[in-house]
Design a protein around this nucleic acid. Structure first.
Length: 444
RNA sequence: GCGGCCGUAGCUCAGUCGGUAGAGCGCCGGGUUGUGAUCCUGGAUGUCGCGGGUUCAAGUCCCGUCGGUCGCCCCA
C-alpha cells in the first residue's frame, strides 16, 4: 500500500539546484572564515538537554526538540544553537588550547517554532567565535569576517547594515539618566522593542522604569534619544557621548571597536545603533546585528562579546566574541537584491567537461566505457547518454541540457583513432586523436 | 501557543448551479533529415493534501486535521 509522506513542518528538501545554492553560500562563509584565520569545527547534532537549560533556563524547553531514548533515562535535545557546544568544547580542553582560539562552524540547528518568513525549524547557521582576546580586535575580526563573506556573495553597504551597540555604554547612559540599577533589564527590553511600540506606549513604559513624571520629562526625552540614536561609525565616539550624556570614558569601549573597524576599512558598512540589545543575558560588552538595509527583514546575523560563558560551562574565565549568521534570511536578502542566479541555481551546478555521443554503432559503443573511465581517472567530468537513439541532434540537445562544455562524437573516424570534439559554447568542431583527448578537454 | 490566506498532474492553472478531471508547458520513449533546431509519433504521473460530515451525487458545501505562506508571541 503506497503512502504519501510529507517532510516535517519547517524543514526543507534540497534538490540539486537548492543544494548548489546552499553550497554557494557555505563556500562564501568558509572562504571568509579561512582567510581570517579561523579553523572549522563541528560538534554533535544533539546534546544533553541540561546543556541548554543551564544557560537559558527551563523556559527554553518549549522551543527545543527534546527527546528521550526508548527505555533510556537521559534527556537530549537537538541543538538549537552552537554556542553551548562551543563553550563545552573550549572548557573541556581549555588548558591545552593555544590562544587565541579562532573557530568557525556551519552546522544545522533545530528550533520548535512556528515557521514564518526568514524562520524555519531546521536551518544552517554559520558561527564564528574568537576566544582569548580582551581588546576590541576580537570584535573587529569577527565583524570583518562576516562582512567579507557578504562581499563575496555580492552584497554591499547599500544592501546590509552592521548595527553596533555596547551593553556597558548603554548601561552607563541609562544610569546617567536616572534609571535605577534594578530596572536596567527592563530598560534594555524597552530599547529592544522601540520600533514596535507607538509613541504613547513607549512613553508609558519609560515612565514605569522611572523616567516619567514632571521631573522625568527631560530624562524621558534623553532616553528616547538613546533609543533612537543611530549614526555612521566614522565620528561615532563623539556622537555617542553627545547622544547619551555619558562621559568619554564610559563611551570608550564602543569607540575602540569603531576605531578598529575604521582602521580595517569596514566602517562604510557600520553604524552605531544603541537600540540593538539582543535577547540573551550573557552578552557582556559589544553587541551587534546585521540587517537588510531597508529594515524589512529579520536580522541576518547577530552576536557580541560574552566573556563569562566558558566559565559558566566549567572552564576558566575566557574573553570571547561570537557571531551567528543563518542561511534563511541571508538567502531571502540575496534573492531580493538580485545576487542569486535567476535560474534557481542551475548555473551553480558543476558543468561536465564533455558529453559523449556514440554515433557509429557497436564499434563506438565498445570504445566508450574505456574512454570514460580513463578520463574520469584523470579527474575529468564526463557524461554519456543513456538513450538508445543514435540521433546526434537529439543527443546534442541532451549535452546542452546538462551544460556540458564539449561534446565528443564517436563517428566513423574512430577506426582511425580520431573523434570529433565540438565546443558547445563556441559552436566550433575539430577532429582530435583519442590519445590527445584528455589534454584537449583540459584545455592544455 | 494564537490568527489571516492558500492546497487540483513535475510546473502554471481551468474546472459553470454539486453530476466522480482537463489544458498549456515541462518530462520520458521512439522515428526522420546526422550537429544543440524543425517535423512525426507514443507515454506516464492525480485516492483533487488527508479524514469525516451533508447529499441520490462532493474537486465544488460544512467540520476537523496535515502542510505551505504571512503576521502575533518569542527570537539563542
Amino acid at each position: 500500500m503506497a503512502r504519501e509522506f510529507q517532510g516535517p513542518k519547517g524543514t526543507r528538501d534540497f534538490y540539486p539546484r537548492d543544494m548548489a545554492l546552499r553550497r554557494h553560500i557555505e563556500a562564501a562563509w568558509r572562504q571568509s572564515s579561512v582567510v581570517h584565520g579561523f579553523e572549522e569545527i563541528d560538534g554533535p547534532t544533539f546534546e544533553h538537554l541540561e546543556l541548554y537549560t543551564v544557560k537559558s533556563g527551563e523556559g527554553i524547553v518549549s522551543e527545543l526538540f527534546s527527546f528521550r531514548r526508548a527505555g533510556g533515562e537521559d534527556d537530549y535535545a537537538l541543538r538549537p544553537e552552537f554556542t553551548p557546544t562551543l563553550a563545552r568544547m573550549v572548557a573541556a580542553k581549555a588548558g591545552g588550547l593555544p590562544h587565541p582560539i579562532k573557530w568557525f562552524a556551519i552546522p544545522s540547528h533545530f528550533r520548535a517554532e512556528r515557521p514564518q518568513r526568514g524562520r524555519l525549524r531546521e536551518f544552517l547557521q554559520w558561527n564564528v567565535d574568537l576566544l582569548g582576546i580582551d581588546g576590541p580586535q576580537a570584535e573587529v575580526e569577527v565583524l570583518s569576517t562576516a562582512i567579507v563573506a557578504l562581499e563575496r556573495l555580492g552584497l554591499s553597504p547599500a544592501d546590509v547594515r552592521v548595527k553596533i551597540s555596547h551593553r556597558g555604554v548603554v548601561g552607563a547612559a541609562l544610569r546617567s539618566l536616572g534609571v535605577p540599577e534594578e530596572r536596567t533589564a527592563d530598560a534594555f527590553a524597552l530599547l529592544d522593542r522601540r520600533d514596535k511600540l507607538d509613541a504613547a506606549s513607549f512613553t508609558a513604559r519609560a515612565a514605569e522604569i522611572g523616567l516619567g513624571g514632571t521631573d522625568g520629562e527631560k530624562a524621558l526625552e534623553a532616553f528616547a534619544r538613546v533609543a533612537r540614536a543611530r549614526f555612521p561609525a566614522a565620528d561615532a565616539a563623539q556622537a555617542v557621548c553627545a547622544a547619551t550624556n555619558c562621559s568619554a570614558a564610559d563611551a570608550a569601549p564602543l569607540a575602540a571597536v569603531l576605531d578598529g573597524l575604521k582602521a580595517s576599512g569596514m566602517d562604510e558598512w557600520c553604524e552605531v545603533d544603541l537600540g540593538i540589545v539582543r535577547g540573551l543575558a550573557y552578552y557582556t560588552g559589544a553587541v551587534f546585528e546585521l540587517h537588510e538595509a531597508s529594515g524589512g527583514e529579520r536580522a541576518i546575523a547577530g552576536g557580541g562579546r560574552y566573556d563569562g560563558l566558558v566559565e559558566m560551562f566549567g572552564g576558566p574565565r575566557t574573553p570571547a566574541v561570537g557571531m551567528g549568521m543563518g542561511d534563511v534570511v541571508l538567502a531571502l536578502v540575496l534573492r531580493d537584491r538580485g545576487k542569486l542566479p535567476a535560474d534557481d541555481g542551475e548555473s551553480l551546478l558543476p558543468r561536465p567537461d564533455a558529453f559523449f555521443i556514440s554515433a557509429e554503432g557497436e564499434a563506438s559503443d565498445r570504445l566508450l566505457p574505456g574512454m570514460l573511465s580513463s578520463l574520469r581517472r584523470d579527474g575529468l567530468h564526463v557524461r554519456q547518454s543513456y538513450k538508445s537513439t543514435r540521433n546526434v541532434g537529439k543527443l546534442l540537445a541532451d549535452a546542452g541540457k546538462c551544460r556540458a562544455r564539449m561534446a565528443v562524437i564517436l563517428g566513423a573516424e574512430v577506426a582511425e583513432g580520431m573523434v570529433q570534439v565540438k565546443d558547445l559554447d563556441r559552436n566550433e568542431q575539430v577532429m582530435v586523436a583519442v590519445a590527445d583527448l584528455a589534454r584537449h578537454l583540459r584545455g592544455d
